[in-house]
Structure formats: structure tokens, C-alpha cells
């Protein structure tokens, strides 16, 4: 695969929740974390991260507070709320079922069809 994969619709929320679940992060760090974990496989349009963060915060899945970044700048840190943790678990379970189902379908031999 030469080019990084475009993100599937709706998966950005899941990735953000996962990234933050490992510890509070500011927006830019969320971006870096996702790219780092995915081994630069996924490309996210940088700005689109923010509406997604606001949406999640609006839904009460993440919470934010202002803090200081590693190079002493004021940054907004996001952390997972209890509701967010529950949602992450549901989403992960759903995603796993979906991907295994799709994998099964794709792995089917011609004679099975």
C-alpha cells in the first residue's frame, strides 16, 4: 500500500477515544498519537480533528481543561470520561465484530459462495 489510507467515515471518533484512553492529551498530541500508533498508515486532515473533539465533548464522552504543554505553551488537554470509556468499549467490540465478519466474507473460497 503506497499511500496512507483515507479514514473511513465515523472511525475518527473511535480513534480519538482510543488515543485519549491511554492518558490526557492535547489536540495536536492526539493527532501525533494516532499517526504514531497506526505506523503512519492513516492520514487525518489535521483541522477536522477539532470539530470531532468538540462533538465528543458535547456528547459528554470526553472532558477538557487548560494546562501547560511540554514546551511551556497553554494547551487544552482532553481526557476520557466514564461515559467515554463505556462508549469506547462498545465501539471496539462493534468494530471487532464488523471487521471479523468482513474478513470472513472476503476469505471465503469460490466454492463456498
Amino acid at each position: 500500500m503506497a499511500n496512507p489510507t483515507e479514514l473511513l467515515q465515523g472511525t475518527l471518533d473511535l480513534l480519538i477515544l482510543k488515543a485519549i484512553s491511554l492518558g490526557p492529551l492535547h489536540g495536536y498530541a492526539v493527532l501525533l498519537r494516532i499517526q504514531q500508533i497506526s505506523g503512519e498508515q492513516l492520514r487525518i486532515q489535521q483541522g477536522s480533528l477539532y470539530p470531532a473533539l468538540y462533538r465528543l465533548e458535547h456528547q459528554g464522552l470526553i472532558a477538557s481543561e487548560w494546562g501547560e504543554s511540554e514546551n511551556r505553551r497553554r494547551a487544552k488537554y482532553y481526557r476520557l470520561t466514564a461515559a467515554g470509556r463505556r462508549r469506547l468499549k462498545e465501539e471496539v467490540g462493534y468494530w471487532e465484530r464488523l471487521s471479523s465478519a468482513i474478513a470472513t466474507v472476503l476469505a471465503a473460497a469460490p466454492e463456498d459462495v
Binding site: 492535547h26 483541522g47 477539532y50 505553551r73
Partner: peptide
């Protein structure tokens, strides 16, 4: 104001 400073922070961190 929060949205402005957050985006500004992003730009500066990225530039760093």
C-alpha cells in the same frame, strides 16, 4: 476564545 487559542496552539506545536 478557546477555539482560537486551541487552533493557534496546534499551529505553533506543529511548527515547532
Amino acid at each position: 476564545r478557546d477555539m482560537d487559542s486551541e487552533l493557534r496552539f496546534h499551529l505553533e506545536a506543529r511548527a515547532d
